[in-house]
Design a protein around this nucleic acid. Structure first.
Lengths: 195, 195
DNA sequence: ATAATAAACAAACGTTCGTTAGGGAAATAT
DNA sequence: ATATTTCCCTAACGAACGTTTGTTTATTAT
């Protein structure tokens, strides 16, 4: 082991854990499992991390911050609601596809966080959803979007995107921008040909 | 215990397991956990079921059959593509909301099925998605739907619906028909006001 | 009343779980 | 050269896991 510093090793652990948590789930992934894939003993993991849950916390809150920051930037821009929605979705998809395994863990395994972390997590998620809801409400006030249940629509929109890591393959031909373009076009304009 | 026959007890086990699998996940739910909620010892469960995985199999394949049958009925009807899409979504939402806990387990925990069951499961799911894809392709041929990536759109549509059990509360005021109406309206007509 | 069946139990099986303790080898700093 | 730190090891801890066994209790059928 020449080139591996402790920081590298820690990141390697988190990366492999991310992959295994996505494939098998957090609860079904054992520390011996994880260590085996890295090529060390389970006990050795604890030279780099404090606990199994710390790994999950790192993954979840890293993703949460990425999503949050990307949306906050867009919020400040002066744009029409439909432009803002499109930009927000592009940004969301970009964060999502930059590490789709971590995203999948973020969306599916957060419930295994212990109580205090869970509280913070849910608060952040709610806050994030509310920012999207506000964009749709603004769009209705501006006369661009029709009357709708904004919360329902946002959850449908985010769900359709967030489920993607389970079938999105990076070797596929769609770029994040194209994915976002497809999704927002359907949500804004619909499938029906406009006559 | 007067009114409980063996069949009732088995159903009770499956029902409670469904609830716990949804809340905690399959791997994080122990047989002692499950037994405790029912009020018996873990060993007693095995008078009624063969294994933990049998419970998951029962839940998953029951739901798979329900979804499949409901769609097959609609496939036979002679309808335009947009009408057929709407009916298919309504039907899908109805099955989903009839037992939203079982649906959540079905969508999130199927990966814990053992290999042979997993194969069957994935084949059924693929088949199901293809039926939806065909509806969108037909709609394009009929001149109703615009050119699009049909598979991508179907996965987005189904994802936006399937994620619902995680936030759908039956005591909410939306009926399955209203939910389906909202979803299909967005997907077919979009959010933008048509001018 | 007696036999048969069903459903629960306590106890234990072997295995795996996350984690800790203590020590040794190799790299780094002094 | 020596001391310190880093990283991994073996060994083991207690707890929890799914499941099996053998037995008791309650219900149902004869």
């Amino acid at each position: 082991m020449i080139t591996k510093t402790k920081l590298n090793r820690k990141q390697q652990i988190i990366d492999k854990a991310t992959q295994l948590f996505q494939q098998q789930g957090y609860a079904a992934t054992s520390m011996r499992d994880l260590a085996g894939y890295i090529g060390i003993e389970a006990a050795s993991l604890y030279s780099h991390i404090k606990s199994k849950e710390e790994i999950l916390q790192t993954i979840c809150f890293q993703m949460a911050n990425d999503f949050f920051q990307s949306l906050e930037k867009i919020e400040l821009e002066k744009l029409s609601a439909d432009e803002k929605l499109k930009k927000a979705v592009i940004s969301h998809v970009q964060v999502l596809t930059k590490d789709s395994a971590a995203s999948a863990v973020f969306f599916s395994e957060w419930r295994h966080l212990s109580d205090s972390y869970l509280k913070d997590f849910l608060a952040m998620r709610n806050n994030y959803e509310n920012k999207f809801i506000q964009i749709l409400i603004d769009g209705h006030k501006e006369g661009t979007f029709k009357k709708m249940d904004a919360k329902f629509t946002v959850l449908a929109l985010l769900s359709s995107i967030n489920w993607m890591p389970s079938w999105y393959k990076p070797e596929g031909k769609l770029t994040p921008e194209e994915i976002a373009e497809n999704v927002t076009d359907v949500f804004i304009n619909g499938l029906k040909i406009r006559s």
